[in-house]
Amino acid sequence: MRKARRKLGDDDSGVDMTPMLDIVFIMLIFFIVTATFLNETGLDFTRPADGGGQSSGDPKPVIPVYVDEQSLCSVEGFPRECTEVDIAVEGHLANKPGATVLIRVHYAADHYVQVMLKDRFTKRNLKTKFEVVGKSG
């Protein structure tokens, strides 16, 4: 008699899991559906924080590269194919060791040119500095 009652009590204390299971499933489905797995890749165009002219004593040599509004490139004032800018800069680097590449980009120049230049100079471990010129209205 006593044994039987205890058994009955055990059964009753078993919590009904069904409502919790329903909620858990709904949450699971929600998170599966909303999960977006984006795989973006990118280049770091972050400008270095202003060093406050820490090397103002000896101005670093600079190799100027210009990209005009028609997305045409020039190095030190001489027109160059944009795909050959890095080779031209490499040549100038012999005269100006440790130089920074100053890339002046016209406001209306196509975006892919600066990405290509940044990519190539990153590959060659050259420091680049970007400047935007000629803001149009």
């Binding site: 973006e40 165009f45 400008r47 980009v105 406001y107 209306a108 196509d110 975006h111 892919y112």
Partner: peptide
């Protein structure tokens, strides 16, 4: 992330970046 079109203006990309 700035997702610029190949032919977007460089200046706009830099304005957003800054």
């Amino acid at each position: 992330i700035i997702i610029g079109d190949r032919e977007a203006s460089s200046g706009v990309i830099w304005e957003i970046q800054d």
